[in-house]
Structure formats: structure tokens, C-alpha cells
Design a protein around this nucleic acid. Structure first.
Lengths: 337, 337
DNA sequence: CTGAAAGCGCTTACAG
DNA sequence: CTGAAAGCGCTTACAG
């Protein structure tokens, strides 16, 4: 049944075949310039003939290095994170890293498990989009082991750590100011999770916009939910059943906005005409939705790219100063408001 | 500057601290039942105290095994693949694998490079969605090294290899029959790349549907393109400028359909009223697009799950028969036709 | 359960 | 450039 698989071809085999020492062969796989071209040719030829495959794992073990990067995000099925991952991936590949992927679905337990797995796999660095309930202990563990880490999207308070994220406050401020500027007096803020900093920050922007416009906030127009389309669908119905319903909606994310749009239609409203809406993220779907969604762009892919660049720098230069990169959001006006 | 990082805590250290042999400690990290509970407790306690992190890489090197799986897809930014990856990822995690991610953007060169990287990283198995120009040699290389592989989405002709894909022919047949059944005589087939089997299969379904309905095909209504929204936008304009334009459009994918919808509006048509449209894939965006897209569901996530299951089986039982899993698509009727 | 030894495939350091 | 040796952190096999 099991014809024993042929033994793996080793660098030793290649060296013998090419008539050189193992040390020389090792120099060649590592692209060292200290080898005569003629020797190099001969050895490469032998590798070809024998079907040699470099064993990066063994090499990393010996040299105590690693070219794999752990990337932990919330959900690949969420376009926002898919775009972010895209940015991370493209940037890291440029530098020859390969990425080990993990998804938490915002569960702390999963996050801890994933971090352990990544560490056990000797990642050379970690890119973490922390779950909402993360405490700084999560990351302390990693820092103690001296492995380079950068945080994305969500910052952990009181933690000296590289970070790439968005200016959520300004994003929310811009969105809400846009709605107030259209004459709305009752602007709801729906979706997202109260406890998370990404929600709190938006809330601050929402508040400042109201203060500047001299409009009172009705706390009943602020309802949180799971950060999904289903969450948006549920919460829009709650808020519209208010005695004195809002005339415009600021949504925590585009996903929430899509749920809200579906909900509004169900209730007989025409989103974008009866009720103005603005989303957050500007995921690709926002452009083709009906009505096309006015939203705050959070540049997911760029965020990913910058986070990857930062991690690369941190790996190359562990002693460098902690850096925080805050991306400025932009309002993209379309037809929903 | 560089305070030398503290030496990694090894199993040896743990054993010494707990007063047991290294062999015993090794049994414990591997969850062997052959250890007395009291000993286990003592050792786990020591690990905790010392901050021990299991080195899976070293373990795999010694035991010649691997718990990482390479997954190579075309594009994470494309929701179809993101959904597929989601399925793969969830299933593999269940069995304790971690996934190494690669994206080809349909470039053969990138695919070859990625495969090399995966092999060098000693993956325990490979899940490959081959680029359109793949030849069977690509995969032969992997099979020779005896590493388990399963193909997804696109099958390579003349290759004995596990495969999970869709019945594209039936999918196209169902879609086109739906349009012909609504009385259309001129149904275009736009987008996708001629050379790829995923296109050819759809073409067969398109043809059979026409034959059964007794309607002649006008070859000028068949135009290919890049499989992107931009591709769809370009090609819809070409086909609508025909002397005798189509009254309905069968699109290679939802992405193409979204491009087509935008293009039709630009030209003054009302998609779903003047011109009927059906897409392919049923990505999440299809539901919220305007008009909501009638499309053929290709169950991306399920495909991913099945492919992952198949790979797991292949790894556990290398001698088992080659298996092909063909998923039956379903027409999802919405408002675009 | 222990203890000592060998080995996975590589890199490193060193004398020539 | 070569050659012989040691070591990365683990598992394996074996005698006790």
C-alpha cells in the first residue's frame, strides 16, 4: 500500500553530485556572491537534475530567523478585511515573506488560540487586528517573546505598540456634518458595538458635529448592533419605530448601511429620498448598491499596505521608535444622501 | 542597542525545571496519554512559569510532518475567492491546520513562484486554484514530490488529481434557458477568457440551451474580456453597438454583470427592464445590487469547504482513489431578469 | 516512566 | 573555496 516515499533530496546530495562541499552549496542557495560563477552553474545544474527543493524550515531553525508573517484579521468574508488583507499580502510578498492567515470572527478565545499557533510556528512578525474585547495582556505576551508586532484598525489603550488605523472621529464628524448640512435635525447613529474603541471614536465625531451645529442629540437615536448586515437590518427597524423617527442615518459601516437599506425598503421608505443615509468604509459594494452609497472611505487596502510596511521596518530595525499611522478618511458622495 | 534577546525556553529547560526527562516532557506537549496525571500537572506548571512556547517547526522537521496547508487562489479582493477561502479556512482550522496564503492574480509566473515557496516551507498539502494558462506540468512537479494536492475551480486536463469544481455547463444552460424561456431570441454571452475551461464549459451550456430552444446563435453576440467589472463595462458597449443588439445578456460572472449594468445605464438602458441580465456566482453583492441580480449560485464557500475536506482525506489516506466533486449550481431569480 | 544517543536539513564558524 | 564539527529544538527508538 504505502510505497515509502523517496527520501528527500538534501543539500548534501546536491553537493556530492556537483562535487563541491556542503558549505559551498549552502552559499549558493543563499545567493552569496562569494562563489565563482562556474561553480554556481555546476551546482544549480545538479539541483535541477536531482529535483532539489530548498528546505526553508530547516534553514530557519538553524539560523533562528523566519520569513513568515502571521496576519490575524476578523473575517475574510467581510470585504473590508479582504481588502486590507490584499494590501498586506501584496506588500509582504514584495519583501519575500509568506503569510500565515488567521481569522478571529471577533472572538477573544479564537484570537488567543491563533496567536499561540502563530508563535508555535515561529512567525517572524505578527500583524494583528485585535478583537473588541482584547486587553493589553494579549499583546504583552507577544512583546515579551520579542516578536515584532503591529496592530491594525483597533488600538489597545496603554500599549506601546506600532499601529495603523483610521481617524474614526474625523470620519464620523465629516459624515454627520454632511447630513446636518443638508438640513437634518434628527440624525441616527446605528450599528457597531458600544464597547469597542472604533465605536467610541465615531461617537465622539458624531457628538462634535452636533455641538458645532447647535443641535441636541437624542440618545434614543443611538443604537448598537452586531457589525453585520443582519445587525443593520434589525436595528433600523428599532430606530424607525421611535415616536419621532430620524430623517437621516449615519451607519457604523457600509455593511450596516446595506442592512438598513433593505430594512427601510421593507418598511416602505425609499432610501436616499425619504431617508438620507451615509455608510462607513467605502467597500467596493458601496458603488454598485442601490442607491449608490454615500460613505466615508477608510482605505482598507492602503491601511493593509501601510501596516505591512511598518511591520517590515520593525523587523529590520527592532530598536526604532514606536510609530502610529493614522489615515485620514474621506467622504465619498453618491446618491444615498 | 541590541540587548540580546533572552534565549528561547526549550523543552530541555522545562524538563529540568520540572525534574523529569526531556522524553517525558515531549510526550506531554504531544498530549500522549502515557503520562501520569500528577507528572503532567507538574510539567504544565513548569511550562507556565517559564513561558514555554512549543516549537512546532522544530517538531515538524524532526518528525517529517507538517500541519500547514498552502492555499493558492486568484485574488482575495474578489469576493468569490474570499468566500472560497473562508470555507477552506474554517474547515482546515477544525483539523488544526494553519493556512499559508498565496494569490496569483491569474499569472502563471506568480503561480510557479508561489508553489516553490509553499514547497520550500514544507507544506503538508496544497490547495490550488490554477491560473488559466496552467499546464499539467505545474502540478506534476508537486505530485512527484509526493505532496498531497487538490485542485479547485479549474480542472487541468489529463491529470489524475483530486478536484472540486462546479458544473459550469449546467449552470450556463440553466441561466440561458431561463432567458430564452422569457421569450428572448438574441441572448449575448459576455466576459471571461476564451482559453479557460471555465469559459468553454459555460459556452457548451449556452449552446445546448439554444439548440433545445431551436434558436440560432449569432457568434457576434459572444465576446470575451478580462474577468473583472472593468472588463464587463467595456464589453457590454461593444455588444450593444451591434447592428442588431441582444435583448438579454448572460454574463460570465457577477463581476462582469456589475460592469454590464453600469455600462447599460450609461448608454441609456434600464437594466432589468429594457435588457434582461443574468450573472454567475451569486456573490454577496448580487443581492444588494441595483437591480438585484438574477444569477447562478456557484456556492463559493461550500466549494472551499469541500476542497479542504478532500485535501484532509488525501493527507490521511494517500492511497485513496482520486475523487472529483462537482457541485450543482442553482439559478437564483431576482429582479435583473 | 528515565536517560543517553541519533537524526530531521540546514547554517555557522573555523582552520586550512 | 573545502572539510569536519557543532548546533537550532524537537522526536524517535531503545535499553533499563
Amino acid at each position: 500500500m504505502t510505497t515509502k516515499p523517496p527520501r528527500r533530496v538534501t543539500l548534501q546530495d546536491v553537493a556530492k553530485h556537483a562535487g563541491v562541499s556542503r558549505a559551498t552549496a549552502s552559499l549558493i542557495v543563499r545567493n552569496s556572491p562569494k562563489v565563482a560563477d562556474s561553480t554556481r552553474e555546476k551546482v544549480l545544474q545538479s539541483m535541477e537534475e536531482l529535483g532539489y527543493v530548498y528546505d526553508r524550515v530547516a534553514a530557519n531553525l538553524r539560523s533562528q530567523s523566519s520569513m513568515t508573517i502571521g496576519t490575524i484579521i476578523t473575517d475574510v468574508g467581510n470585504t473590508f478585511f479582504a481588502q486590507l488583507l490584499l494590501g498586506v499580502h501584496q506588500e509582504l510578498e514584495k519583501h519575500g515573506y509568506t503569510v500565515l492567515l488567521g481569522t478571529t470572527y471577533d472572538s477573544l478565545k479564537d484570537q488567543n488560540r491563533l496567536i499561540s499557533t502563530m508563535l508555535e510556528n515561529r512567525v517572524g512578525g505578527l500583524l494583528l487586528c485585535p478583537v473588541s474585547e482584547s486587553s493589553s495582556e494579549t499583546v504583552d505576551r507577544i512583546k515579551q517573546l520579542n516578536i515584532p508586532i503591529v496592530l491594525g484598525i483597533r488600538e489597545l489603550s496603554g500599549l506601546a505598540c506600532d499601529y495603523v488605523g483610521l481617524d474614526y472621529k474625523t470620519g464620523a464628524y465629516t459624515a454627520v456634518t454632511h447630513l446636518l448640512g443638508k438640513g437634518h435635525k434628527r440624525v441616527a447613529f446605528i450599528g457597531g458595538i458600544f464597547e469597542s474603541t472604533t465605536w467610541t471614536e465615531r461617537m465622539i465625531g458624531y457628538r462634535i458635529a452636533h455641538e458645532e451645529a447647535g443641535i441636541e442629540i437624542d440618545d434614543k437615536l443611538i443604537i448598537d448592533s452586531e457589525p453585520t448586515r443582519e445587525g443593520g437590518l434589525k436595528v433600523i427597524q428599532q430606530v424607525m419605530n421611535h415616536d419621532n423617527p430620524p430623517t437621516a442615518i449615519f451607519c457604523f459601516s457600509d455593511l450596516i448601511a446595506f442592512g438598513a437599506i433593505i430594512g427601510l425598503r421593507k418598511m416602505g421608505y425609499t432610501p436616499g429620498e425619504d431617508i438620507d443615509i451615509v455608510g462607513f468604509d467605502n467597500i467596493p459594494e458601496a458603488e454598485i448598491s442601490y442607491p449608490p452609497l454615500t460613505t466615508v472611505s477608510s482605505f482598507a487596502q492602503v491601511t493593509g499596505t501601510k501596516a505591512a510596511k511598518l511591520l517590515h521596518k520593525r523587523i529590520k530595525e527592532p530598536g526604532r521608535e514606536i510609530q502610529r499611522i493614522i489615515i485620514e478618511p474621506e467622504l465619498v458622495k453618491r446618491e444615498s444622501s
